[in-house]
Simulated scan of single mutants.
Amino acid sequence: MNRLDEIDLELLRALSEDATQSARALGREFGLSQPATWRRIKRLQDQGVLVGRRLDLNKEKLGFGVTVFLGVKLATKGRVSLEDFERAVTAIPEVQRVEHVLGLYDYRLRVTARDIADFERVLRRRIMTLPGVGNVEANVMLSEERRPGPL
């Protein structure tokens, strides 16, 4: 992998703030031509440094007012149960993020629901019926002070 120079890092910072910016606009900002900017972006993609672009939706305006973090401890351990759980949990649309973690729980899930009653429905009918689920701990998000951004 080639080393990243200051312009590469600035491009990554700018794209992490607004991934819709054109190569032309970014080039103007950093004193590069549009083709030179595009080549840098393409190189960063080819190297695996820049992996896709993300669209952030306003969940509240779409009617999803509750976010809950779940700690899930599997009742049974083993490769088969992990794969079965992961396959099943990623099929639930309300589960926005699945993280396999080390610690008290085996997985950390980010679940988005319309309200608490909707979350309870998802928990009872979908998550608690997943293969291998043992203990579950829920933490309701009150506010989000910092959104994920550049490293």
Rank of each mutant, 00 (worst) to 15 (best):
149 G>E: 05
133 V>P: 02
11 L>H: 08
20 T>S: 14
25 A>L: 07
24 R>L: 14
26 L>S: 03
89 V>K: 03
35 P>M: 05
88 A>M: 14
136 V>A: 00
124 R>E: 10
21 Q>F: 02
61 K>T: 10
101 V>G: 02
11 L>Y: 06
78 G>E: 10
18 D>F: 14
78 G>S: 07
137 E>H: 14
15 L>G: 00
68 V>D: 01
21 Q>W: 04
34 Q>C: 14
84 D>W: 01
35 P>S: 09
94 E>G: 07
138 A>H: 04
16 S>Y: 12
131 P>E: 05
12 L>H: 07
38 W>L: 14
76 T>N: 10
151 L>C: 04
27 G>R: 13
53 R>C: 00
90 T>H: 15
18 D>N: 15
4 L>G: 04
145 E>A: 00
14 A>T: 11
104 L>W: 13
123 L>E: 03
33 S>V: 12
139 N>K: 07
47 Q>R: 09
78 G>K: 03
64 F>M: 09
105 Y>V: 05
143 S>T: 12
9 L>A: 10
71 G>Q: 01
31 G>A: 07
1 M>F: 03
116 I>L: 13
55 L>Y: 13
138 A>V: 05
147 R>P: 06
131 P>W: 09
99 E>Q: 05
50 L>Y: 06
82 L>R: 13
9 L>Q: 13
72 V>S: 02
117 A>E: 11
143 S>R: 13
147 R>E: 12
41 I>M: 13
61 K>L: 15
49 V>W: 06
124 R>N: 05
71 G>H: 06
95 V>P: 00
43 R>F: 11
43 R>N: 02
112 T>D: 06
125 R>F: 06
48 G>Y: 01
146 R>P: 01
79 R>F: 03
41 I>W: 09
44 L>S: 14
